[in-house]
Simulated assay, not measured.
Amino acid sequence: MLPSLFVSHGSPMLALSRTPARDFLAGLAATLPRPQAILVISAHWETEAPMVNAVARNDTIHDFGGFPKPLYELTYTAPGDPALAERVAELLRQAGFDAGIDRARGLDHGAWVPLLLAYPEADIPVLQLSVQTHRGPAHHLAIGRALAPLRHENVLILGSGSFTHDLRRFRGQAVDAPESPDVTAFSAWMDRVIAAGDVAALTDYRARAPHARDEHPTEEHILPLFAAIGAAGDPVAARRLHNSTEHAILRMDAYAFGTG
Rank of each mutant, 00 (worst) to 15 (best):
V7D: 02
S8Y: 12
A15N: 04
A21D: 08
R22V: 08
F24V: 03
A26Y: 03
A29R: 13
L39M: 11
T47C: 11
T47R: 13
E48W: 09
E48R: 13
P50Q: 03
A56R: 10
D59V: 09
D63R: 00
F67V: 05
F67L: 04
A83R: 03
E86M: 01
E86I: 04
V88R: 00
A89F: 06
F97T: 10
F97W: 09
A99C: 11
I101S: 07
D102I: 12
R105W: 15
G106E: 13
G110T: 11
W112V: 08
L115M: 10
A118Y: 06
P125R: 04
S130L: 09
H134Y: 14
G136F: 13
G136C: 14
R145W: 05
A148I: 03
H152E: 15
N154I: 09
L156F: 05
I157M: 08
F163Q: 06
E179N: 01
W189Q: 07
W189N: 07
M190D: 04
M190R: 00
D198G: 09
D198M: 08
A201Y: 02
D204H: 13
R208Y: 11
P210H: 04
P210K: 02
A212Q: 14
T218H: 09
T218S: 15
H221S: 07
I222T: 13
L223W: 02
A228W: 06
I229P: 03
G230R: 04
G233D: 02
G233Q: 01
S244M: 07
S244L: 07
T245W: 15
H247L: 06
T259K: 01
